[in-house]
Design a protein around this nucleic acid. Structure first.
Lengths: 199, 199, 199, 199
DNA sequence: CATGAATGAGAATTCATTCAT
DNA sequence: GATGAATGAATTCTCATTCAT
């Protein structure tokens, strides 16, 4: 007498919350947050709007929960980075792992990138900005040349651009990804070298 | 008993269309397109919503008109670039002028960047993408190494990042701008050099 | 074989039913019936909404049960009054005991007074009106002068007003209560005297 | 081509706001505030819900506007009373004019009385309480005997009771009204006399 | 040029209620 | 005795848009 008596009907177990998150994220990423209505999410799941409200108190809470669940790796990355010496190796490791984290939650980050205006007004807005700043502060030497500071920021944004803009450049995705990572690592290396020379 | 009975009130001549555009752009850039209602725009201008409809047939047309008015420099830049040889000098000139164009219409580009999901669904979406691609095709050598192609794209995005993300790095705005430009030019130069070697 | 099937005093072992009533009454009295949701009641008790439905078939049944439990003294008072002669003493006793009944179930009566529009649509509405009429018919001599009939009604309402409006007049609560009772008794006495004179 | 082209259609002039107020007050008084939905009001007027929102920003604003329009006489009465000496004549005049004011806006006052719990949460709640206190302070001598203070309050509440409760006592409405007024005046007189004696 | 009045569609949210477990 | 999960109906409110004047 398990909770699933047949495989034909949908499994109404404890996974509804998860399914809401999945569908919501897909729609948010595709159409944007404002353009995605709860009606649409509910319809796609074949439940009522009220069911969504059983699992999430507000529409915002859906995106907040996604954010919290999916950006944990980045939070951990920042915490790890803070404890490391500001060496080139650390920075390279940050870039590499950040790249991986981005890929691990691609739809969420596409959403964050394409709905910045919206996100700014949401509760996650500040949290997100804080994290970006956290990463930046690990990558940047505050006394470094301004140009090199820009290089570090540029490295991060190259990864972002790599996710979205590079998509319509032809080529093997795997290869493109490697190329993006290489440019980012290169920028970081350039930024770091000069800084050393300046020391 | 015309609309202007005294000269004390603001000059309600023929500039209403322009004023609508200004206020709309400011609000779109600040809050996003969906979150900005026509009521809000009208209120800020102290006219009725219906007045907006005298000047623009739809809400979308307001943003379209802004886009068309403000991105003309970029369109011209692309046309100019297409007629030039693919030399480093050309590319550098493109980067320089693109940077200027971005600054000349900062709120619009901030809006485009922060409302990508929305923009994609709007009529301007495709136009914008086409322009980005136009620029890219001038900057990129299709036979170049993938890594160098990424460098070129990265140069463009460094300019974008420079507009928005760099804002909360401290420093003289003028100097920051120069630094951003330098990194972009540097990336372009690196991309070009290798390509030459490959030739 | 229902969980509550005895006519004697309740005080069931599982006191949840009682707790629901207590919390519900407190909230109904504070915020009104419509503004108080079952979710709120359940949350305050730290049970689920469904638990409420185990004890009461509907929201209305909660207030009905409260009404029935708490107005029994008044029902008994009416029954007692009906068997008495229409003397001044009887009327005075009614007023005195009514005043006590009101105080014994203050939150309920505050609720009834402040939610008349709602109560009217509920099942208890008619019952309540019947009781009020019952009391009135004991206090009023139908052949008495209209002015004296008003005096009798006014006596009752003075008690009501005493409960709620007098609260923000300063003074010892006990003393205020006595003063209210005195005015009510006085009105009844005046009404009665004239009636006698008319006889 | 005046605003009315035919008599068949409803007169869509400047009276919609007024019509909304009328229908809303009727429904609020009949069913209570919460039980009356904007849909119902709109349907009864044969306009859309959105039309209501053109004239009133929120549901609450409808009742606020009614309150402000209809209780002005009472406000003026209080202001007048404040400037008068605290004689019996003044108090009697207050009672008389208050009684008239109540009758002039009967549905509103019935609504206020029967929806006190709701009104308390609304913006008008405090205003209303203030007015009641204003009246009370004119009628009451603060150094008077507590019993006489109660008499004054009771006079006011007799008028209230007279509006609503007396309805189901048989008799000519005009006569009943006079009787109610007489009892109220009587209470005020009794309260005043004693006070004089105490002075 | 512009307004006043209105609409139709749709949004997020809340509620009392149900029922299998 | 109670819960977890869900529903259906309703609610307040907002928005882009229209049109006669």
């Amino acid at each position: 007498m398990g909770p699933t008596m047949d495989g034909t009907k949908q499994q109404r177990r404890g996974n509804t919350r998860q399914r809401i998150q999945d569908v919501a994220l897909a729609l948010f990423a595709e159409q944007g947050y404002e353009k995605t209505s709860l009606r649409e999410i509910a319809e796609r799941l074949d439940v009522t709007k009220a069911a969504l409200y059983y699992h999430f108190k507000t529409k915002e809470e859906i995106i907040v929960s996604l954010f919290e669940d999916l950006t944990k790796p980045i939070l951990e990355l920042i915490e790890w980075g803070r404890g490391q010496p500001h060496t080139l190796e650390t920075k390279q490791e940050i870039i590499r792992r950040y790249s991986e984290a981005l890929q691990g939650a691609e739809p969420l980050f596409r959403f964050m990138q394409e709905n910045q205006a919206t996100v700014r007004e949401l509760r996650i807005g500040d949290t997100f900005k804080d994290r970006m700043r956290g990463l930046r502060d690990i990558l940047i030497d505050p006394e470094a040349d301004l140009v090199d500071q820009v290089r570090s920021v540029s490295a991060m944004f190259t990864l972002h651009a790599g996710m979205f803009v590079m998509q319509d450049i032809e080529g093997d995705p795997e290869k493109k990804h490697e190329a993006v990572l290489e440019v980012a690592l290169d920028l970081i290396a350039q930024a770091h070298e000069h800084a050393r020379g300046t020391d």
